[in-house]
Design a protein around this nucleic acid. Sequence first.
DNA 1: CGCATTTGACCAGCGC
DNA 2: GCGCTGGTCAAATGCG
Length: 194
Amino acid sequence: MDGQESTPPPLPPPFAPPLLSPLNAPFLFAPSLPSSSLHPPLETQILPDIDWVSLLSGQGMLGENKPMIESASNLMAQNGGDQDEKGNKDKRKGSRIKKTSRPRFAFQTRSADDILDDGYRWRKYGQKAVKNSIYPSYYRCTHHTCNVKKQVQRLSKDTSIVVTTYEGIHNHPCEKLMETLTPLLKQMQFLSRF
DNA sequence: CGCATTTGACCAGCGC
DNA sequence: GCGCTGGTCAAATGCG
């Protein structure tokens, strides 16, 4: 554990598709903007709608950039973004939604830390051993109106690689980003008066 | 005291 | 139809 990897958090999913719902547009690119709290990843791969079997069995895509935006936006178009999940809040029954029913974005990141600071606040709601992975953790965005989830797990073949999967699109601005940008925006407004 | 994490149980989807 | 697996819930616990 040297400092080799104080991992640069990969950019959260929403950064991707300009094709996504215009409703979310204002926030789509936010997290990808550079800021003191959002460092660029040292080594990050974006994965298309994940093939966990090949991924976790060592055939990961590290080394070959694969665009995932298309598959993600397709999913989005089919499902109307993270708008689903409405109506199945009633207790546990029926609360589970079909897998792949929401846009998903995955990153491979070489990191010592499981938690990547993407500027949003996350609450862990579960962790359990699954067949092809080492105790993946499940997180949910703490924003009350936001249903975005993410799954964090390490490759069984190479535990230095963290695979982060985002599901859904944030429907609110990134707090940290806003903190960072606010003074900048004010300054720009001020300068634009001249 | 409030919020986040842990953890076991529960449940739905999928493959056989 | 049954069993397995992954994903989620929610109570208990920990921490600031």
